[in-house]
Design a protein around this nucleic acid. Structure first.
Lengths: 140, 140
DNA sequence: ATTTTTATATCACTAGCTTATGAACCGGCG
DNA sequence: CGCCGGTTCATAAGCTAGTGATATAAAAAT
């Protein structure tokens, strides 16, 4: 049974990939910004593991985000080594804009879907959300 | 409403990204192999548009796949320009292996989910599948 | 006071994409 | 037939975002 789910998810993953505007933000950049938006400022070392990239990659990503004004580096008064990354207002806007683009594309598709399919997807959303929480906890 | 769906999908997309073993195959490579497995040999020009990459990128990808023995280049007897790409047995195995890895990871998560969530996801699968078909048609 | 560990940055390198361009092949038309 | 515009694929050069190895500096441990 789980094989069927995995297969379905696989197809679906491609759908989402296609649905995502190939805009400015890379996958990791977008994901990191969303994390910063969702759960506030983080130290660099708290970001690279859950985002699934190496520490140097996160350093570089933060540098890019900072250069583009989407995030800012701060320091922890209690730990001179730490770098605390915070999302900026422009960063929030970028996330919102990206979400809008995806929503628009998705809406156009959902319209063409039978009402019962639409309903089935809506019904599954909370479950998908909880699935998301599960995986987020475990990989931190 | 669609905003909620898009938001849920966004989270879900990250889940899938995390669930995918960062193994040998790139996203496009895996997606292309699956397409070749699903709907048989294709010309190069029939691949790069639906996969959302430039034609040179597809040429390079096919070269890599060929070098790794996962796909093979053939020619169309009726059109000397065309290159016909076919998945090899090794390619099918690579796809299967990747799917297994994802299934294992997903199963471990699904186990921890309440039964009704599990059921809701299963119930939404056909709808997700049709959504996938929709987008595949439209971007060809 | 050393030593070890932790947090971040830097370096050199690679994969996989892009645009621009080139080369081979097709179909049609004088 | 022979040329010509349009396809199809390949090549070249350059960019982005990743990697592992390693350096540096602060904190923690001995």
């Amino acid at each position: 049974m789980d094989v069927a789910i995995a297969g379905g998810f696989e197809r679906f993953y491609e759908v989402l990939r296609r649905l995502t505007p190939r805009s400015e933000l890379s996958l990791t950049a977008a994901s990191t910004l969303r994390r910063l938006e969702r759960s506030g400022p983080h130290r660099l070392c708290e970001l690279h593991v859950p985002e699934g990239v190496s520490q140097p990659a996160m350093t570089q990503l933060v540098t890019r985000l900072e250069k583009e004004g989407l995030a800012s580096r701060g320091s922890d008064p209690d730990d001179g080594r730490a770098v605390v990354v915070t999302i900026t207002e422009a960063g929030r806007e970028a996330v919102a804009k990206r979400r809008e683009g995806r929503t628009r594309a998705l809406s156009a598709l959902l319209e063409q879907l039978p009402a019962e399919d639409h309903a089935a997807i809506v019904a599954a959303l909370p479950a998908l959300e909880r699935l998301g929480e599960l995986i987020t906890e475990q990989s931190i």
